[in-house]
Design a protein around this nucleic acid. Structure first.
Lengths: 153, 153
DNA sequence: GAATTAAGTCAATATGACTGACATAAATTT
DNA sequence: AAATTTATGTCAGTCATATTGACTTAATTC
């Protein structure tokens, strides 16, 4: 009975998100800001609509968070060159630095979690996590994470 | 660079919590109720103080959620036999059934996620998740999940 | 008897989400 | 060219989950 896996996931995820949460609290930002910053950093020039799709939140929910990030000079909006309705999202230099800092915290925890694991564990964990995701969503998500995935395949 | 692990964790956890979230929406309960129900089911007779420690929320936050669960006949409070200040928490029969149902959903997803993984993957995943947790907290959490862990060690 | 502990409550506040309605501008379709 | 669709943004109201701080009651411990 994998009862303990349920609980381990709960506690692992809590501490995993705790690192950036604590760091962002100084800026009066929260987890919502982190998520937006992360996916904009990873997908420079992303459309607002696509970001909404990734985060599965409404336009209104994104609105406030995005405005705060733009006002704080973390994220920048540029008119699309082909389609001038678009407000493509980019991190500013400051936003990039912040994103890198937050990612560093999470990478550190992930590396520490892999200490003492046998050869090939990385691939197992990746496959496990991917298969935890709803089958219909896996394709899109793989596209999203492909760039770094490819380096190992 | 384990950039994709960060994102896989995000999406995996979202879908993992999505199963019980959807199921509980019918009862007008949310994730907070699920967490309380889960840990009471797993630790029958737990003290309110200890539950607060596990969930790392305040008494006031727990208050409302717990009241709703008690009112709905999901959780039951009994006076401690040794210490009559205590209001020890138990699931009712109905609460037990609900907890089992929700756990079933999550076990199903976990089992599906382990399809095609090599022998010994279970142990690797468990160790990885445990090592994701803050070192200071691991002891307490291991105590919490011990019962099922022992079956395999 | 005094201090501490377990639990609960009142009040105010913050964050992150939601629904629904509507507005604007640009692109696409007919 | 007109009609429709799309991308984005905004106004208004609401909800769930969490917070801080202050205080109460009852029971246990020192």
């Amino acid at each position: 009975m994998p009862y303990d896996l349920i609980e381990l996931l709960f506690f692992a995820y809590r501490d995993f998100t705790g690192d950036p949460d604590d760091a962002l609290a100084e800026f009066d930002f929260g987890r919502a800001h982190h998520r937006v910053l992360h996916f904009v950093e990873r997908n420079p020039g992303i459309m607002v609509t696509d970001l909404l799709g990734i985060l599965r939140i409404t336009k209104q929910s994104l609105g406030r968070v995005l405005k705060q990030l733009v006002d704080a000079g973390i994220i920048e909006q540029r008119e699309g060159s082909h389609d001038r309705r678009q407000r493509l999202l980019y991190t500013t230099e400051r936003g990039h630095t912040l994103a890198v800092d937050l990612t560093r915290l999470q990478k550190k925890r992930l590396k520490r979690a892999q200490i003492g694991l046998p050869e090939g564990s990385d691939e197992i964990i990746r496959k496990f996590l991917l298969q935890m995701i709803d089958p219909e969503a896996r394709g899109d998500i793989l596209k999203l994470v492909r760039s770094s995935f490819d380096l190992r395949d």
